[in-house]
Write a protein that binds this DNA or RNA. Structure first.
Lengths: 338, 338
DNA sequence: ATGAAAGCGCTAACAG
DNA sequence: CTGTTAGCGCTTTCAT
């Protein structure tokens, strides 16, 4: 009853395997009646083509890889979800390649998974690739698009990190703040450095453009995590001397950490301290966090769709796209009290 | 220079493809010298075996599937990460199958992805499978283990949800609370119902065992999200009459939502209200949330390791495991003030 | 519209 | 230790 191969179906339907193949894949050159009969038989026998076999024959795997530096952080898990949406709509599989796990094995990863042609295309989630890895990717000639950060030599869909950080910083300045600190993320693993750098640069330049002072001691690392935000806030609050009246955080997770630490110490937000973040994390709204919102799900979906189009032969399907963002004013920012 | 097939390598090394195959896969029956030579040539030529071809020949894909109801929620993204750790150590690939995307397409998913033998084994992250799907899985005879919730007829690694909820509830009771509300998660999508039910049951029974009253109106749905927690808290706080002095939440995300809403209203935690959660979410520590901690990363890793062992022929490698959990007392719980 | 047959690239017996 | 060869299951010309 159960069909293990296309031959079983062909035999049952009394046609050739070629016809079964055409019928099942919806190709022309099969009469409607035969097709229907074959489809019925195939479904009854529970037949599904072996992906390895068809992969070998066609050179396509119908799976797309997602290369991510982390899977459980806000941006990444959402972007993955977005890619997934597009893939499911097109019956493609998603292979998750989590770079965080690869200590020294990154090298091998690229040789193996990438070149083994286990995937038809690749989405790279904002991380910095080594020159040798970039070379590999170029040699592979696999369609690729970056999401959330640049990958040298490839198209990308992401927000303009400079503008985003500028928007957040300017919001604080417009409110009247002059003593503004910054919590950003310096990735120790070097998995992702373009984005934080851009946000950092924007912050500093926006400050200077407004005639404000940029203080090195008010530039802290928050590691893009809540815990990192808490630590940064501790440093800031423990430091002697003047305190900032506002803090720009390069991500909501860090901003929330800052807010929690502030609350623990009885520092009131926004009366004593304004806090602004980036992302619009699920916790931002309930926490009243002002932030510059972006939508990684959409970004991932868009990237995957471009790749899918490319794979189906559309010319120039892959191109760079600037993802939208906007400031969400909530209750964590207000004019300084003095 | 670049080798497209094993034959190229064989030709370059002046040996047969069989020898190349053995050499590369580290099989015996190849002299050390030949092996070394072949390896050198292969690497120089950038040769990597086609997974489709070897998959066809061996019937193995070296890919393990992870079936998840959501990818971006706390438990799931961590469990995926854990599975990934084990897979990477063994050079296996991870195929992510996100059920949330499949509206009506669940049916097809099982027929296609599952039966197409694109994966050698499957990790199912706590979700309720339909009888027809279970049947499919059984027929496939693919090694499978459930994580974080039961899948009928298969082994699982997860915490004892009854005990966990009981522990959290009892903590509140021990503190002296008598008016205790509950926020749990009722999954509308039916993707996951065993877990919340168990937690619910434990809560009610623990209350009754302590001689306390169980009030239907203090049982709220929080949808396992922060926003859901906020909504549940709104209902609770807006309701006329007596207020609970403590709230048991079936997940930290909901508990944090409750705390945020409490703060917004000036309800002090823990003076006016104690809150306890489950999970030990990253935000729990900074927020001071008392919770019953569990470790989904470990759970995922363990599950994947069992599957890997099973695949490498070890007998009875897959079995059920009770994952550890423990109460973390922090500052969100205290005796009731009156 | 349908079928026959030659691969796709690798693995696994079996010989030698 | 090494080579030969027959598949693995599907796709895809090329005939018919």
């Amino acid at each position: 009853m159960i069909a293990s191969s296309i031959e079983d179906v062909a035999a049952a339907a009394k046609v050739s395997t070629a016809t079964v193949s055409r019928a099942i894949r919806g190709l022309p050159r099969v009469s409607p009646q035969t097709r229907e009969r074959i489809l019925a038989i195939a479904s009854e026998m529970g037949y599904v083509a072996s992906s390895a076999a068809s992969g070998l024959a066609t050179g396509r795997t119908r799976t797309i890889g997602v290369l991510a530096p982390y899977v459980s952080r806000w941006f990444f898990s959402r972007a993955i979800e977005g890619v997934d949406v597009a893939l499911q709509e097109n019956q493609y599989n998603l292979m998750l390649i989590n770079l965080a796990g690869y200590g020294g094995g990154r090298e091998r990863l690229f040789e193996h998974t990438m070149l083994r042609k286990q995937i038809d295309a690749l989405v790279v989630l904002c991380l910095a690739l080594l020159p040798s890895e970039l070379e590999h990717l170029h040699k592979t000639e696999i369609p690729l698009v970056a999401v959330g950060g640049p990958v040298k030599g490839f198209h990308q869909v992401c927000i303009d990190d400079y503008q985003v950080a500028q928007l957040a910083t300017q919001h604080l300045i417009d409110l009247g703040h002059t003593r503004i600190a910054q919590v950003l993320g310096e990735d120790k693993n070097q998995l992702n450095f373009a984005v934080p750098k851009l946000r950092d640069k924007a912050f500093e330049e926006t400050l200077l453009a407004a005639g404000l002072q940029f203080r090195k001691e008010w530039e802290l690392d928050g590691d893009f995590t809540v815990a990192g935000g808490v630590r940064a806030a501790e440093h800031l609050f423990d430091a002697p001397g003047e305190r900032p009246t506002a803090i720009f955080c390069a991500s909501d997770e860090m901003a929330l950490g800052v807010m929690m630490e502030a609350e623990r110490r009885g520092i009131r937000v926004p009366q004593d301290l304004s806090v602004v973040g980036i992302d619009n994390h699920e916790f931002a709204a309930p926490a009243g966090l002002t932030t510059v919102a972006q939508n990684p799900v959409e970004q991932g979906r868009l990237a995957a769709e471009m790749l899918l189009n490319e794979l189906s032969g559309k010319a120039d399907a892959v191109h760079s796209v600037a993802a939208p963002f906007h400031l969400l004013r909530r209750s964590s920012t207000a004019p300084p009290s003095r």
